[in-house]
Design a protein around this nucleic acid. Structure first.
Length: 845
DNA sequence: GTTTTGCATGAATCG
DNA sequence: GATTCATGCAAAACA
């Protein structure tokens, strides 16, 4: 992985993953200031980051002599050119007018820290950097009067930049001056990284052979960049457009950092190649293509493509695929300006079929059309799905539209997004390319890459801060999450249950009680707040308590059950226990108890441990009791989360609750397709299935019962609970012991508010049961005692297990299964006996 | 029931 | 404030 090292001899901080994540670069842009010491990173080039082939040597752009890569040991040996590449010092000093940037090294002994000071900075900007006060200097630059090049925001001012002397002037040469000038002329204080970013976004090819003098629209066919079958389109005219082209002053406005461009801009620093080329002007002489659509194709890519296609390739524009573009709808939204500039004019909304060739020569036919939209048009290419799939593109990848000259045929290339690499093979080594490391692939070149064109420059990419990505737009505002690096995503990965553990109702919020399915829920107008994570326990006596860890001393304090803590909480905030309101006071809990507590609170699998009777020692009894209590409260067989404070979503439910309400996405939006495999849908389906099975079973039981009643006198021990065994009595008996626990559990779930039982015995489908429970229930109902039942039994309070002899367990479980089969769902604790009507009618759905 | 189609909406960006 | 464009969504078409 590439790395940068702060050049401050006393700092020497390196960019590392930890660094990036922990405190990052200060500038928010690409490394500009060491966050550690504040020294400038700018202009410093280091081996791993910059040189393409790991040789450590590069070539002077001017004299072609090898120079060192710029590692610390040889940091004075060369200059890093604004417009890309490096040059040896000797050449640098002779490069008048080529905006050679001085190497800026803290502690540098060079006079003024400047090399190539004669470089003609057209801006009159002081060509040196005060290494010790980079920010100040940048500020100063901002106020430089001669700034010719404005901020990025002055997008369109690019056209008023320095005039080009002749049409045939190569792009690169132009940029060498202008871009370099723009670097120091960048007055953007708001985006401190801009200077660097611009530099790298603007750097040009060492030998760009793509000249704007390309007779745009003067292909042999005389047609402007159109698909072969599209006739009758406007011919490319010279006039305003081409004149504009001739006079086009190419200071490629640094493109807006699109998802790829942003990363590539950084990558460009590495490869010094991927620059946004002002595209060929399109039809109608309109040249307002936003730079984000400027094709960013390297020379090599162009050459390669041209070689492959044996034609001259004129890059037109590119677009980063949005989720919609890459989705199954098969519609690729074309930027309006691009569509109108490079595609045939259409008057009808239906548009025209248009043939576009991919880089393999395969021809695709799309429907080029538009929709009216806000008095404007929205251009789309329809039917792109096969092509997209063929190219294996996805959201974030870039499609590049080019034109073949002669012929004017449209070609569609692509470049894989570097972001996607993250999910693939981050280990992919840099390709030894003359173009620099981590080069993304353009179209077919990707085929030759081991990872399908996804390159490893994500290592550089990782250094693109989110602030920069934030500006990215092309992937869509709603898709910005796609920009998140996988590592970042990992950092943020948190389950909904975990979130619920942390959410609290806003302290000032007052809930509205709504009743859904006879269940009361508290709805809050205000957004929830994050609270402190606590652990709830229940003693075998049924007492509920809550444990919180002091943020200051890390000691654990016992708190009343109903308390909701803020995110930050210390011992001094312990107003409920004056004896434990200081960090100086030792823990409320012994180490062993603490261990058990943490095991309960921390490890979602702790119940497995408990079930395995590990550490069922006295010190862990409370924990076990907690488990049992929470199991009783939530779900007997639920291996879910520890019982923690009420959630905001519906505080009756505790974090970890995976009932159908809790597992719904927070927005509640989005419709579920019948094929949807989401938890909600699966749960509903499963429960429906369970319900039907229950009904069926019940019906058969009734029939059998009726038949039995006809034949004989009912069995003596048969209670009137519709076949309920005596086991249920055992359970009920057990419940009587624990009911208070369960009851209080319910109470606490509503933060003290009394809420009614969730029991499904009222003849409703219980949507609050644990979705994973039904299968177990089903198995139990049909197969009698199962392993699950045994496991569940282990969740019964130890007291019960010990007080009741083990042999009663079988009966108990059997009856439990029977009771469950009768629709008494255990999720909310024990069967609510009150709901079990004689005759088992309570299970009616 | 699924897919396609056309439009509406609103965030982001531009001027 | 205007414009662009990604996306949601409902109706229509299709299987």
């Amino acid at each position: 992985m590439g790395s940068m090292i702060c050049m401050n001899e006393l700092c020497r901080a390196t960019t590392s993953v930890e660094w990036k994540k922990g405190w990052g670069f200060k500038s928010g842009g690409f490394a500009k200031l060491c966050y550690n010491c504040g020294s400038a990173f700018e202009n410093l080039v280091f081996c791993e980051t910059f040189h393409p082939d790991e040789s450590g040597w590069r070539e002077c752009r001017t004299c072609r002599k090898p120079i060192h890569c710029g590692c610390i040991a040889s940091k004075y040996l060369y200059e890093y050119l604004d417009y890309g590449g490096v040059t040896c010092i000797k050449c640098a000093r002779h490069l008048d007018g080529h905006s050679i940037r001085p190497i800026q090294i803290p502690g540098d002994d060079f006079p003024n820290g400047t090399l190539g000071s004669k470089s003609a900075q057209p801006l009159g900007v002081e060509n040196k950097i005060d290494e010790n006060d980079f920010e100040r200097r940048r500020l100063m630059q901002t106020n430089e009067p001669g700034q010719l090049f404005q901020t990025q925001r002055n997008d369109k001012k690019q056209d008023t930049m320095l005039p080009i002397g002749n049409v045939g002037t190569c792009f690169s040469n132009l940029n060498q001056q202008n871009i370099g000038a723009s670097l120091f002329g960048k007055p953007d204080n708001e985006r401190p990284s801009q200077g660097v970013k611009d530099m790298y976004e603007s750097i040009n090819q060492p030998s760009l052979n793509f000249c704007l003098s390309t007779p745009i629209g003067t292909s042999s066919s005389g047609q402007p960049f159109l698909g072969g079958d599209v006739e009758g389109r406007e011919q490319s005219k010279t006039s305003p457009f081409q004149q504009g082209q001739r006079a086009r002053h190419i200071l490629p406005k640094p493109p807006k950092p699109s998802p790829t461009s942003g990363s590539e801009s950084v990558k460009g620093m590495a490869s010094q190649a991927r620059i946004a080329r002002p595209p060929a002007e399109g039809r109608g002489g309109r040249s307002q293509l936003l730079p984000r659509y400027w094709p960013r194709i390297t020379d090599q890519e162009l050459e390669k493509l041209a070689g492959d296609l044996k034609s001259t390739i004129v890059p037109l524009f590119e677009k980063v695929l949005s989720a919609s573009d890459a989705g199954r709808i098969g519609r690729l939204v074309l930027p309006k300006a691009c569509a109108e500039a490079y595609f045939p004019p259409i008057n009808q909304s239906e548009g025209l079929p248009i043939r576009i060739q991919d880089i393999k020569g395969k021809e695709w036919t799309f429907q080029f059309r538009f929709w009216p939209n806000n008095n404007s048009r929205m251009y789309v290419l329809e039917g792109v799905t096969p092509c997209i799939q063929n190219m294996q593109l996805q959201a974030g990848d870039t499609v590049i539209f080019s034109r073949i000259d002669p012929g004017g045929k449209l070609v569609m290339g692509f470049r894989k997004a570097t972001n996607n690499v993250d999910m693939q093979d981050p280990q992919t080594p840099n390709l030894p390319s003359g173009n620099g490391s981590g080069e993304t692939s353009f179209s077919g070149m990707a085929d030759n890459l081991p990872n399908g064109g996804r390159t490893s420059d994500d290592t550089v990419n990782r250094q693109v801060p989110m602030s920069e990505k934030k500006k990215a737009r092309n992937i869509g505002s709603k898709n910005k999450r796609l920009l998140m690096h996988a590592d970042d995503a990992m950092e943020l990965r948190i389950t909904w249950e975990e979130i619920q553990e942390l959410l609290r109702p806003s302290p000032t919020a007052k809930p509205n009680i709504v009743v859904v399915e006879d269940c009361e829920f508290e709805e809050y107008e205000e957004a929830p707040v994050f609270g402190k994570r606590t652990i709830f326990t229940a003693r075998s006596s049924g007492d509920q308590e809550q444990w919180a860890q002091c943020d200051s001393c890390a000691k654990w304090r016992r708190l009343p059950f109903h308390v909701l803590l803020p995110a930050k909480w210390t011992c001094s905030d312990n107003i409920w226990d004056s004896r434990r309101c200081s960090c100086a006071i030792p823990d409320d809990i012994s180490p062993r108890e603490l261990e058990a507590l943490l095991r309960v609170g921390k490890d979602p699998k702790r119940r497995k441990l408990v079930e395995n009777n590990e550490d069922l020692e006295s010190s862990g009894l409370d924990a076990l009791a907690t488990v049992a209590a929470s199991d009783m409260g939530d779900s007997i067989g639920d291996m879910g989360e520890p019982s923690v404070g009420a959630t905001t979503k519906h505080p009756r439910h505790r974090p970890g609750c995976s009932c159908i309400v809790c597992i719904q996405p927070p927005s509640g939006k989005g419709k579920h397709h019948p094929t949807c495999k989401c938890n909600v849908c699966l749960t509903v389906k499963r429960r429906f299935k369970t319900l039907m099975l229950r009904k069926k079973k019940k019906q058969s039981e009734r029939e059998a019962e009726l038949a039995q009643a006809k034949d004989q006198v009912p069995p003596k021990d048969e209670p009137e609970t519709d076949g309920m065994t005596s086991g249920i009595e055992l359970l009920q008996m057990n419940h009587s012991e624990n009911e208070h626990m369960n009851h209080s559990d319910n109470e606490r779930n509503s933060n003290g508010d009394q809420v009614e039982e969730f029991g499904p015995g009222k003849g409703q489908l219980d949507l609050n049961c644990h979705p994973n429970r039904d299968d177990d229930m089903l198995a139990e109902a049909t197969a009698g005692m199962s392993m699950t039942s045994l496991v569940n039994a282990t969740n019964l309070p130890l007291e019960y297990l010990t007080q009741n002899r083990l042999e009663s367990l079988g009966n108990s479980l059997l009856s439990q299964a029977a009771s469950e089969s009768e629709g008494h769902h255990p999720d909310n604790g024990f069967v609510k006996t009150a709901d079990v009507e004689p005759g088992g009618k309570g299970a009616e759905a």
